[in-house]
Design a binder for these strands. Sequence first.
DNA 1: CTGAAAGCGCTTACAG
DNA 2: CTGAAAGCGCTTACAG
Lengths: 339, 339
Amino acid sequence: MTVTIKDVAKLAGVSPSTVSRVMSNHPKISIKTVRRVKKIMDELGYHPNIMAKSLVSKTTNTLALLLPKPAEELLINLFFSELIRGIVTQSNQENYDLLMTTGASQDGELEAIKRLIRGRRVDGVILLYSRKDDQIIHYLREQRFPFVLIGRSADYSDILSVDNDNVQAAYDATQHLIEQGHEKIGFVSGPHDLMISQDRFRGYQMAMLNANLPMNNDWLVEGEFIQESGYNAMSQFMNLDDRPTAVVVIDDIMAFGVIRALRELGYRIPRDLGLVSFNNVVFAELSTPPISSVDIGIYQLGYTASQRLIQAVKKDEQSTHRSIISHSLKIRESSLHKQ
Amino acid sequence: MTVTIKDVAKLAGVSPSTVSRVMSNHPKISIKTVRRVKKIMDELGYHPNIMAKSLVSKTTNTLALLLPKPAEELLINLFFSELIRGIVTQSNQENYDLLMTTGASQDGELEAIKRLIRGRRVDGVILLYSRKDDQIIHYLREQRFPFVLIGRSADYSDILSVDNDNVQAAYDATQHLIEQGHEKIGFVSGPHDLMISQDRFRGYQMAMLNANLPMNNDWLVEGEFIQESGYNAMSQFMNLDDRPTAVVVIDDIMAFGVIRALRELGYRIPRDLGLVSFNNVVFAELSTPPISSVDIGIYQLGYTASQRLIQAVKKDEQSTHRSIISHSLKIRESSLHKQ
DNA sequence: CTGAAAGCGCTTACAG
DNA sequence: CTGAAAGCGCTTACAG
């Protein structure tokens, strides 16, 4: 039923080899046969079997996007939508498809990746972020398999990656609150083993130290990148005797939780608590009050990651290039001086 | 370098056929050889080459998700994030991977699908919505290739699909505004050739007719599912001499645009304009004012679509089942009586 | 400029 | 319960 290379060859009166060469634009095929073969291919509606082609060429024109375990939660976060948007756009431009997988569990992720790689199902892997002592990265390096990390690895500095300067970004955000006259500033963090949490915390620390401001363990909460975590952080903060007057929140979606909690508790932003967060997701601007947020160029992160990875795949090398996407603090009402 | 079925066979002292049978849990292989072979597979870290397997089995364990042309814009909309979330979750549970593609242009979409299908790259296709006279659907039906439509087809009623009762949903939304005392109600629609636009418009119409309320062409705007469209719709509405006192907006993200425009023009919701929209995306509740929105069970739509499609793929049949996911209007401040 | 042959890594009747 | 053989649909040296 399906039309194969043989059918085309037969009708065109050439060998399958020739048809194959026509497809790959082999230079020394006479223009006449090229035309004849192409015509037949059109007439028959021929499309090469991608699996067969992959089997012999050992190339798939497919990139894997690993959605870390809680893919469920993950995709609630607009951050990932925008990231994926950048990735899909660029990879499709280059005629690469994007395969999304998750692992059921933590080591399920590694299993999933192994299956794809050893099964020769994809040419490269995109990692959305890294933990310390990340098994996936260990494996990928060991296999010398092309991959790109969006973020920073704790263990290796010589891997292909696209990241922001998160330390500086957090420094800027904190500094801004300090300039608004705040002295007691809290920090709502993400999962502690993620590099992004650590980097942003470090930036916060540096700004505080630099300004000789006290830090207090009570002003520090750690959560997941979901609204609830921001919400919960506030019940902790606002019950303190000595509570912060402003807070740096590591992710917009958590900031939304913070705002919701505060509203329910009867506090107002920025009057009772100044707020600045990260990612500058579309809704940051639409929120009431509008949220000050560090724009980290999410789309650009995804776009660049895909681009670099495809370059590496094509050259069949493990690049070690590290791209930094610039950030900029968008100042809005949530962080403006309480007056 | 890569370990193949032959390597395993050799070390285990059996034939490749036997190894293959072990993998597929063939019933009549002695438990002893099963154990021996599995042990060797572990030791060697053997993973079957998925391409080779696909080539002979003509099955890929992969589903294609077609992102319609403006994939760029699409993924800004939380609707799609949640949909994809449902799809990824369910398909991964069933050990299916998800392949995302876009077409560069309109017929680029069809080309992309043809390439995947004739290239035998995927087992089934998920369509995110349909236009009238949809080329992709025509093609898929003609090829008798398994696919599921999230939405409704104008041309065929006998295709596997998962949808809401959008007519009823829009009826409910409009009726709610009527009960709040509104008589002049506008409608902000999506692209006219999408079934979802037509269905929701029809529900709106029915409710208006039913209540003997006048409809006015000026109260009708059509846009894309992006914020700007909602924004622009308002410059049109609010400049009318005879303008609506309430509006049904077809998509939350457009509703955010409406709100932003109104705020800039100095109007207040719901005092100056009552508002109800659709999808009940997380931010609808967080908006100021909170938006009344019809919850259409987005996650469930995606989850069910994937489930039905995989069932159809496994039975190798083109199912004609049509699932309806129920909706419910979440009433919030944006639509409450102006008093 | 083109063809015949071997091979990519699997699976599956067929035979025993 | 297991093996030998043919084949899935391509590509690519090798030869001419």
